[in-house]
Amino acid sequence: MAFLREFGMWLPSRVVTNAEIGEKVGTDNDWIRNVSGIEERRFAAADETVAVMATRAAEDCLSRSDVSPDQIGMVIVASGSSERRFPGPATTAAQALGCKNAVALDLPLASAGALFGLSLASRLAEKFGHILVIGSEKMSSVVLTEPMERGVAVLFGDGAGACLVSADKGLARIVDSWLGSDGSYAEDLRLEFDRPLAMNGRSVILQASRKIPSAIQYVLDQAGVLAQTVQVYLMHQANQNLIDRVAQAIGVSSERFYSNIRRYGNTSSASMLIAATEWSREVGFATGEPVVFAAFGAGFNWGALLVEGE
């Protein structure tokens, strides 16, 4: 058994408006808002690396829990925007956090990484005890790479989210999760070193609009939970139009899907845990109420995770 014990987040202080990013790629606020729902995003400073942001989000998470860094058995950092091939940010973050007894594991998965991390942690918590799952992304370093492309540059932002998964207790019990991968779409969303991000937006949206609802429906059906009874859906904040279509596909109102994409843009693997952190502080888990996490990203990798409030 495993539980979501606490959440944390960290966002850079620099706000980048649609006007500012739009000027770089020849578009405006109205277009960006219409295609994505985004109004602003955060860009990190030069010294705010993926590992630094991961550390700050995890510090925020641990500071709100009763677990100390030396009690952490594993640190998982999901990121698709790490600054170097190896080592990844997990060992650096674990060291900076003082998690001296932790194994550090990198998940180089864009967008769906935190969801995969939570699913892994739910299966490893019995063995490793407390596990920190972190999603941290510095997408500004990706989207500002020349040649900048309008359809990509306006979408992304920087930030980090964290979740402490424990075997003994927490805010919510992890009931089930389902993960999927399909490498036949590997070329449709990819980031080569020192190259701009390449995205076949039509393929991404078409597949995501089908695969996310299917994954959500699967975990709900397995647990005998009706979509309409879920307290909140905490989905990867890719695009407001996609969130709306996923809600429509499973037959619930878009308001049931927590959304902060207007303020932060798409922060890839960090977005779902940033959303979870904000929602848990604004509303919070209710005893016996189901909550669903879902994500989709490069690979393609996607999935859903069902929890129940304690």
Binding site: G201, R202, V204, I205, L206, R210, N241, L242, R245
Partner: peptide, 16 residues
């Protein structure tokens, strides 16, 4: 349909 502006990334799943 894409080049003509009738379909975009989000209209496509709706058409399907």
């Amino acid at each position: 349909l894409f080049d003509s502006g009738l379909l975009d990334s989000f209209a496509l799943p709706d058409l399907v």
